Amino acid sequence: MPGRLQHRVAIITGAGSGIGLESAILFASEGASVVLADINLPAAERVSKLIAELHPNAQTLVKKSDVGKESDVKALVDDTVAKFGRLDVMFNNAGIMHPEDSTALDTEESIWDLTMQINVKGVWFGSKYAILAMRKNPTDVAKGLRVGGSIINTASFVAVMGAATPQLAYTASKGAVLAMTRELAMVHAREGIRVNSLCPGPLRTPLLMDFLNTEEKRQRRLVHLPMGRFGEAVELARSALFLASDDSSYMTGTDFLVDGGLSSCYVTPEGEPVLQPPASLQTA
C-alpha cells in the first residue's frame, strides 16, 4: 500500500534531533524522499544512516544549513530540486531556545537578535524559497503530484498564551511565526500552497530539557499539563505528517495545537498524573 507521501519530496530543517529527527524517519517510512537539513551536519548524517537501516529503499539528502542565512536556505532548496526534481513539503522546524532568554528586563539584545534571526527569519527564508520551488512543480496525475505543496512552520503553545518560565524572545518569535503563517496561507492559497503552523506543547526533547535545566523549572511546566507529562517528539512528527499529506488537504492558515490540553486548561484536573507516554511511543 503506497505511503501518504509516496513520490513526494520533503525538506526538514533541524532534522538532526527532536521533532525533526522523528519526522524524517516517519516521512521516509511514508514514501517521501527526505532532505535532512541541520546546522549540525554529523547529527543529520546519523539520522540519514538510521533511515537507511530502517527503510533501505528510502532516498535522503543531507545538507548542512544555517536557516538564519538566506544564502544557505536558497542553496538548500536549489540542491533539493536539482536532485529530486521538485519540492512538495517544506517543514520549517529548526529553531532555538537560548538558555539566557529571560524577562524583558534581563534578556540581552544579542539573545533577542539571535532568536529572531533563527526562529523568524529562518521561517521567512524557508517559506520564500519553498514557494518559488512549489510554483514550478511538474504535475503527474498518475502519481498524484501537482503544482503547489505544503509548508509547515514549527511555532509553539507559547505563541497563544504566556509562558510560566520567562523566555521573552522565544515567545515573541513564535508569535511572529503564527502571524507569518496566516498571511502566507492567505496570499498563496489559490496557488495550491498550503501553509500551517504546528504548535507543540512542552516536549521531552533536548531543546526544552536544556532550557528547563532544574527540577523546579520542569515542575513549573508540568503543573499546567492536564496529562501530567511532557510530550514526545514522535507525537509531533505524526501531526506534521498529517499536515504534510493530503489528509489535511482542506487545511491552511491553521494553528495546529498539539499540547496535551495545556491551552484548554485553567487548572489541572485532580488525580494521579500520567507520567509516561503510551507504550507504543516508548519503543518508537
Rank of each mutant, 00 (worst) to 15 (best):
S150N: 10
D246Y: 07
V267S: 14
K174S: 04
A185P: 06
Q167N: 15
G162V: 05
A104C: 14
Q6R: 11
Y266K: 12
G85T: 06
D140Q: 11
V77L: 06
A163L: 09
G3E: 05
Q219M: 12
T283N: 09
S248A: 15
N119I: 01
G14R: 02
K69A: 13
E108V: 03
P166M: 12
A58H: 08
N93L: 04
A10F: 01
A240D: 00
A104I: 15
S17Q: 14
L114K: 14
E272Y: 10
M134E: 05
G260K: 09
N213V: 11
V81E: 06
Q59S: 14
I111C: 11
S17R: 12
L87M: 06
I152D: 00
L36W: 03
A133Q: 02
P206G: 07
I131S: 00
V160S: 06
A163I: 04
L225D: 05
A130C: 06
L208Y: 06
D247V: 06
E108I: 02
R46W: 02
L87T: 02
M251W: 12
E191N: 09
A237Q: 06
L207A: 10
L207D: 10
P277T: 10
E22Q: 14
V177I: 09
E215K: 15
S249F: 09
P226T: 12
L225F: 13
G175S: 07
L184V: 00
D66F: 11
D255I: 05
T154D: 02
E109W: 14
G228R: 01
G122V: 02
L203I: 13
E272C: 07
I111T: 15
L145H: 04
A58M: 07
S65K: 04
S110A: 15
S65E: 12
A244H: 05
V234M: 11
M180D: 03
A133K: 05
E70F: 04
A52K: 13
S156C: 02
S263A: 12
M251R: 05
T268Y: 00
R204A: 15
V47M: 10
C265G: 04
K64Q: 15
T80E: 10
G3Q: 08
V67T: 11
G31E: 09
T80P: 10
K121W: 12
G271W: 08
S249A: 14
G85N: 08
T60R: 00
S17T: 14
G148C: 03
G3I: 07
M186S: 13
A82Y: 08
I11D: 05
P42G: 12
S102R: 14
A237I: 08
P206Q: 08
I96K: 00
L54I: 09
E30S: 04
G253C: 07
T13F: 02
I51W: 01
R8S: 01
G122N: 01
H55L: 07
R218W: 03
S197C: 13
L243D: 04
K49I: 04
D38R: 00
N153L: 01
P273Y: 11
E109F: 14
P138T: 04
V177W: 03
L114I: 06
D88P: 06
R146G: 08
C199G: 00
G149H: 01
L50K: 15
R194T: 04
P269V: 09
